[in-house]
Amino acid sequence: MSGERATLALRVVPPAVLGFGRGRRLIERNLLVARRTWWVPLSGIAEPVFYLLSIGIGIGKLVTSIPGPHHSLIPYAPYVAPALLASSAMNGAVYECTFNVYFKLKYAKIYDAVLATPMGAADVARGEVVYAMLRGTAYAAIFVVMMAALGDIRSAWAVFALPAAVMIGLAFSAVGMAATTYMRGWTDFDMVQLALLPMFLFSTTFYPLSTYPRWLQVVVELTPLYHGVSLTRSLTLGYVGVGDVGHAAYLVAMGAVGLAVASRRIRTLLLR
């Protein structure tokens, strides 16, 4: 049998249930580290919550209402809150899978040790991506509770906002991890900022697509965060439609491609 080839295929194609297999050993390692400095990851939730409060008690006073999905008119805070949920899922995932993974890859040499054991490159990729997802899910859960407390949730569909945030986390952590394997030095991380900041500011986070000229609308519609924002907004505002299936599919496909590239790249980087 061509064992390694078969397992390679199995390792590269993400299995239906992620994180099962040896990758979970890496999750165990990360949790052990996080346990000691729990306040650092925990403080990561502060940023989106501060944004939420700032919108609610500050900018919300300046912008009274804004056009929402299906020609609705929506108070500003419930409009922005789901977008902040989506972008914080993006930020958390990217942060974990770029800076942290790069540090482990190039400086701490964590994966060199890991790959000397029966674990493989795909186990590393899967372990890190699933860990980032877990962390993102914890943030998203806290955020959704905060939204509910501030009255920014307007539909029972919102229970699906958490899985939606997980999907966003998966998509961005997988692609972030793949991108990290191409980084040559810390200065390359400014490219990450170059990708994240415009998405955060322009993916209909703060105001609707109709604000832009048509050509810019098309550009925005191509970005992954736009799909994440649209999905979470439909769910928490309760305007769920067929389009949301498309948004979800976009995110899942992005995650699958990112994971496959990341596994392959870790292989070529470390198993030379």
Binding site: R22, R29, L32, V33, A108
Partner: peptide
């Protein structure tokens, strides 16, 4: 693994 203790290094590696 510099982020772990001596004992945890052995433990985590064994888990791999």
């Amino acid at each position: 693994d510099l982020e772990l203790t001596v004992r945890e290094n052995l433990y985590v590696y064994g888990r791999y």
